[in-house]
């Protein structure tokens, strides 16, 4: 080694050992599952009535909850990133709580809010809205657990983006709404996209809150994760096959958005 002062950038060699082990820890279980797939029966297993119903329900509800996450999450992220008020940090922690909360706890909390005997249950019933055991309950559960993902990633994007362009637009006479729609949003579009994908993926995998709050009925509330859990009881092969479907769907979603993000 010569003692020149040219800085050598790069990662230390030893870092690769835990990095590879960590990657193996994540990838190996997926490979192990692949070895258990009965490929001859795979088509029948994943195209059965119950499997198709579960996959369609999962995609529909996850899409709906992603829309809700965007509709409520974008304003939430803007308020958290661009304003300052007393108790803001407490509010942020509370809003992000579902990130660390066990989903079952979320399900119980939702039950005592939107359930028939819950906080809002009676009001909803008077309005003719029955949330219990409906597809709407699934969407509520998924939105509850997925919303923080969108808020976190979008708030991060808003903060790193800074306010320079917004200030310029404002000095040029643009109203707050115009600044928000024409400057702020376009700038954080990549962050919003990845946040929405994260939210969709989280909604797709939602299990605990759904089974606790929404119940489980084919075509109505039994999403793919619930179907997998139930199939495991009687037909482990079908459970493995469906798990693979979920892995593939998740991988496709992540890959597609990676591509479109780098294109942005």
């Amino acid at each position: 080694m010569s003692r020149t002062h040219r800085p050598r950038l790069g990662v230390p060699g030893w870092v690769f050992v835990p990095a590879v082990l960590g990657a193996a820890f994540v990838v190996l279980p997926l490979l192990a599952m692949l070895t258990r797939v009965d490929w001859t029966q795979f088509p029948q297993l994943v195209t059965s009535d119950s499997s198709r119903a579960a996959l369609l329900l999962s995609l529909r509800t996850s899409a709906a909850s992603t829309v809700l996450c965007v509709a409520f999450g974008v304003p939430m992220a803007v308020v958290l990133a661009r304003t300052q008020f007393r108790g803001q940090s407490v509010l942020r922690s509370l809003v992000l709580l579902p990130l660390v909360l066990p989903p079952v706890v979320g399900g119980i909390a939702l039950l005592y809010t939107f359930g028939r005997r819950g906080l809002l249950g009676h009001t909803l019933e008077v309005l003719g809205l029955q949330v219990a055991f409906s597809t709407a309950a699934v969407v509520l559960a998924q939105t509850f657990v997925a919303l923080p993902f969108l808020v976190v990633s979008l708030e991060g994007a808003l903060r790193t983006g800074g306010q320079r362009y917004e200030e310029v637009a404002a000095t040029l006479g643009a109203r707050p709404t115009t600044v928000f729609l024409r400057v702020t949003l376009p700038l954080v579009l990549p962050g919003l996209a990845s946040g929405a994908v994260l939210a969709f993926a989280r909604a797709l995998g939602e299990f605990g809150a759904t089974i606790t709050f929404a119940g489980s009925l084919q075509g109505v509330t039994r999403t793919l994760p619930l179907e997998i859990y139930l199939q495991r009881e009687t037909d482990p092969q079908a459970a493995v096959a469906l798990s693979l479907v979920l892995v593939v769907v998740a991988t496709v979603v992540i890959t597609v958005t990676r591509r479109s993000r780098s294109a942005l």
């Binding site: 005592y112 359930g115 028939r116 219990a132 929404a214 009925l217």
Partner: peptide, 21 residues
Amino acid sequence: KPVSEEQSVTDVLGKVSAGEA
């Protein structure tokens, strides 16, 4: 015609005791 087919007795009991079912 059940409104939900649960995974276990505990889940059924939970829905009943909560007054959902």
